[in-house]
Amino acid sequence: MTRTSTRRDWLRLADQALAGQPLTPEQGLDVLLAPDDEVLPLLHAAFAVRKHYYGKKVKLNMIINAKSGLCPEDCGYCSQSIVSTAPVSKYSLLDKETLLAGAREAMSRQAGTYCIVASGKGPTERELNQVIEAVQEITATMPLKICACLGLLKEGQAKRLADAGVHRYNHNVNTSRSNYAAITTTHTYDQRTETVRRAKAGGMSACSGVIIGMGETDEEIVEMAHALRELDADSIPINFLNAIPGTPLAHAERTPAMRALKVLALFRFVCPSKEIRVAGGREVNLRSLQPLALYAANSVFVGDYLTTGGQDVADDHRMIEDLGFEIERCAL
């Protein structure tokens, strides 16, 4: 395939993905380097894959920032890291009643998955027990799937979370192996992938994704997509950097909307059957083209993120309705 690919060429990629044949690195670059006037045919092909696995359904997820700030890690993108001077709230793990209230809010937003996210390197025993207690009550009283994101997991912690009712564990790879040291120095890429594997071995579904816009090359974006295919992550959040003042990456340029759409198409082709989620930064980077993202992705966060605001929930619901798509209800 050449850089002047036609509509028929993109549909061949869709056929290839549906046949279970991974894209070559060269084909991945063709997607990222496609001319902007090829984006609609490209999305048409990505949608053929998305529709095969998910029809016109959209999964909604809601985040609660269960523990904010107080993090010893030096991740350059994060307003909660030890090197950030961004003015963020700092508090220890929320109590059970607050976590339960968040679950009820997720239900009101029609979210099927409630994501309990805590800052820090990994959970202490006390924090793990608090989360387990809350999850047990939530799953006993509400038709919600629970995703936990608590940092690096130690031996045995994944099974305890799974036994409590945590359906999914999130731990993003964030960037490519070769770009990792430029983003953080307080833990390694391999530590992150090991936690993903521990989550799966412990009985949870694996959620792992990336942040686009942190100085990575096109080749590294293709590398990330194939790494997540190899990890067999069931859910892949695609974040686009929201450069926050006070963080080391504060001056990074936003990802142009058309490029963001090409990235989403790439991940759909490389990981065809997986839940691809348009995650943090979609409002800032995709701007008015947000609806087009759902032709490649089948999942979004509704409401605010950890320390940044999101689109109004009613606007998200209208966006899905106007596309002729439908919100997927939680099926436990």
Rank of each mutant, 00 (worst) to 15 (best):
P248L: 08
P256Q: 00
R329P: 01
L266F: 04
E321H: 13
V302G: 04
T308P: 02
A260R: 12
L261D: 09
V302N: 05
E328G: 04
G280P: 03
L323M: 15
G280W: 08
S299E: 02
R318S: 12
A279F: 07
R268E: 11
Q311P: 06
R287A: 06
P256M: 02
C271A: 12
S288Q: 15
G246F: 08
Q311E: 11
E321V: 12
G309W: 05
E326F: 12
A297N: 00
N298E: 12
T307L: 04
A257Y: 13
Y295V: 07
G246I: 08
C330P: 03
G310P: 03
A257H: 07
F267P: 02
Y305P: 05
A250V: 13
R254E: 15
C271K: 04
A260D: 12
M319C: 11
G281A: 10
I244P: 02
T307W: 10
F267Y: 09
Y305S: 07
L264V: 03
E253Q: 15
G246E: 09
I320Q: 04
R287V: 10
L286H: 01
E275L: 09
A252N: 15
L286R: 01
G324V: 11
V270S: 11
M319L: 14
Y295A: 09
Q290Y: 13
F325E: 04
V278R: 02
A265T: 04
I244F: 10
V300E: 09
E283K: 02
A252T: 14
L249Q: 14
V313T: 13
A279I: 06
N298C: 09
D312F: 00
G246M: 09
V263T: 01
V263D: 02
A314Q: 11
Y305M: 06
F301T: 07
V270T: 11
L294H: 06
A250Q: 15
P248T: 08
A265Y: 06
R282M: 06
A250G: 12
L289C: 06
F325S: 01
M258K: 14
K274A: 10
P272A: 02
H251L: 14
V300W: 05
R277T: 13
L261M: 06
P272S: 02
T308A: 01
S299I: 08
V263P: 04
N285E: 07
S288K: 15
L266C: 01
H251V: 14
G324Q: 08
A260W: 12
D316T: 03
K274I: 15
I244A: 01
P248G: 01
V302P: 04
E326V: 13
R259I: 13
F269I: 09
P245V: 08
I320A: 06
D316G: 00
E283L: 00
R318Y: 04
N285F: 06
R318Q: 13
F301W: 00
V263R: 04
R318A: 11
G303T: 00
D316L: 01
R259M: 14
P291F: 00
V278E: 10
G324T: 10
L249W: 13
E275F: 10
N298M: 07
D315V: 11
R318N: 12
I327N: 03
F267A: 02
R318E: 13
R287N: 09
S273P: 10
V278D: 09
P272Q: 01
R318C: 02
A250Y: 14
E283M: 04
A293N: 10
G324Y: 07
G310R: 02
S273T: 15
E275I: 03
I327T: 02
P291H: 08
